[in-house]
Design a protein around this nucleic acid. Structure first.
Length: 505
RNA sequence: GGCGCGUUCGUCUAGGGGCCCAGGACGCCGGCCUCUCACGCCGGUAACACGGGUUCGAAUCCCGUACGCGCUACCA
């Protein structure tokens, strides 16, 4: 059996689309699952759409996601170069081969002439005429021109393209690994341009040549390529090569069922309702965990199968479980809610010590003073389950690092009663005498004060939380008080008992 | 328009003739826990696009219709 070799072949024309990332992921998973190789190939043959920095950006995103590749830019490999723009000579060689076999021809038609042809051929029956057997003999190409005429044009330096000669009455059948049998008739295939007038190949020639030269065993790519498979099959046939197995992935849609488009954000500035941002970097910037994103997009079109109801997967687990047979045929809608859930799920399953090391930099960055590693660990432990995004840590944990500067007005209104200051101070008194200061003894102390005053625990708990954190929500009060330490707690309780009544009115 | 692909709860999906008056997950709703919020736990809501076949029996197979999406470039 031939070794498994797959590739992710993006074109550097902008940001990294969420669908591209999934394609890359699936390729990577498939390769690693089978002990094969995953390569990255940059399809930069469209010089007009080339975007500076797009390739670097793409590589960074893959690196961020932990989707490693065995061959490609930056890592090398035996089948390079991995930039198509650096392989022009190879494509020209194969184009000449096609020419010599009569499988392709040169065409000198100008864009204006093509436009004229389309206009002339356009009819109700055929609103989108193709450059094919029906019209090619009416055009200016090496099929109708004499050898001498062709040479003259070339000498004149006239721009020309090389087109694929698509035979009439051919049926192209193939078995897609995801979709099953797919059939096309050659009458719907056009004489595809193989080499553009600028000398660069089109995707169609380049991907066939490269996939063969790079010994690709399986092509896993988006469904938008399904329609051009017949052209590729014809090329493999002309070259006498065996085509790789193919798998066409379903698309990812906006919540409103439309295609996730870069235009949604680029031209409108902000996202219209029903749309979702297709740019992976947007999610990185918002603070999504890479584990969550990978987990989510993996599940968008793939699942582990009957009886396996797991939702949470690490990259390693995905590698272990992935198979193309379990990839769906139909498009999926990108639902941010589930991504959010996965994000908090991945965070709360993470070791606290790991979280500490991830959170520390953002605190240092904001000049937050961290009393000790152990202290931070305790705080994170306490807040872990309510942390949905790592970057939410400081906003919800601020009071662990500084005395509250204000008290939530609504909470003051609701929880601060006339006797609150008195109760809080009594509670102060009680805990200041504590020799063994911990959540358990603190609670005992509080309950005692409550009982003595004939009130429920809540009458002290809420005001105390307000004094100490300034907030109405958070972890259990006794745990907070323990972590904060007696000295800090007493200071804050006294300060609160003094200040809150003044703002109450 | 042509060609291709697709269509199970709001969303992601399980299901490949009887195990399904359709299972799981997110969301939503209700409850429990409780000092609040979150977590967790328990329960609920909700779907086989439509119409014909085939069959003793169809979400599952076939045909048609509708709808959606893709392609229809010297873009990928």
């Amino acid at each position: 059996m031939k070794p498994t070799r797959v590739r992710f072949a993006p074109s550097p024309t902008g940001f990294v689309h969420i669908g591209s990332l999934r394609t890359a992921l699936y390729n990577h998973l498939f390769a690693k699952n089978r002990g094969g190789s995953f390569l990255l190939r940059i399809e930069d043959t469209d010089r007009t759409r080339f975007v500076e920095g797009a390739t670097e950006n793409l590589i960074n995103v893959l690196k961020w996601a932990g989707i490693s590749y065995d061959e490609g830019p930056g890592v090398g490999g035996d089948f390079g170069p991995y930039y198509q723009s650096q392989r022009s000579e190879i494509y020209r060689k194969y184009a000449r081969l096609l020419l010599s076999k009569g499988a392709a021809y040169m065409a000198f038609d100008t864009p204006e002439e093509l436009e004229k042809m389309r206009l002339a051929e356009k009819s109700a029956r055929d609103p989108a005429p193709r450059y094919n057997s029906a019209v090619r003999l009416k055009m200016r190409n090496s099929l109708v021109m004499t050898q001498a005429e062709v040479e003259t044009e070339i000498e004149k330096g006239s721009p020309y393209v090389i087109r694929l000669l698509v035979p009439e009455n051919r049926t192209f059948e193939f078995s897609d690994l995801i979709r099953g049998e797919v059939k096309f008739d050659s009458s719907h295939v056009d004489d595809q341009v193989l080499i553009k007038s600028d000398g660069y190949p089109t995707y169609h020639l380049a991907n066939v040549v490269d996939d063969h030269e790079m010994k690709i065993s399986h092509i896993i790519r988006g469904e938008e390529w399904l329609s051009s498979v017949p052209k590729h099959l014809l090329l493999y046939e002309y070259f006498g090569w065996q085509a790789p197995a193919m798998a066409h992935l379903p698309l990812i849609f906006n919540p409103d069922g439309t295609k996730m488009s870069k235009r949604d954000i680029q031209t409108l500035g902000e996202l219209p309702p029903g749309k979702v941002d297709p740019n992976v970097e947007t999610y990185i910037k918002r603070g999504y965990e890479k584990e969550a994103i990978l987990n989510y997009i993996a599940l968008l079109g793939w699942n582990p199968g009957e009886g396996d109801e797991r939702q949470i997967f690490s990259l390693d687990e995905l590698v272990k479980e992935f198979s193309l047979e379990r990839v769906n045929k139909s498009a999926a809608i990108f639902d941010i809610k589930k991504l959010d859930w996965l994000n908090s799920e991945h965070i709360s399953r993470r070791d606290t010590s790991v979280l500490v090391s991830q959170i520390k930099p953002q605190l240092l960055d904001k000049d937050v003073e961290i009393p000790s590693e152990k202290y931070l660990f305790q705080v994170v432990e306490l807040l872990k389950t309510r942390l949905h995004f790592l970057n939410e840590f400081l906003p919800i944990a601020g009071y662990f690092f500084a005395d509250p500067e204000e008290y939530e007005p609504d909470a003051v209104k609701k929880r601060w009663k006339d006797d609150s200051a008195k109760l809080v101070l009594e509670f102060c008194e009680q805990i200041s005498n504590l020799t063994d200061y911990n959540a358990g003894t603190i609670e005992e102390a509080l309950r005692m004060v409550a009982e003595r005053n004939n009130v429920g625990g809540g009458r002290i708990i809420h005001p105390a939380r307000l004094c100490v954190t300034g907030k109405s929500v958070g972890p259990g009060l006794f745990e907070i008080l323990e972590v904060l330490g007696k000295e800090t707690v007493l200071r804050r309780l006294k300060k609160g008992a003094e200040t809150i009544p003044t703002i109450k009115q």
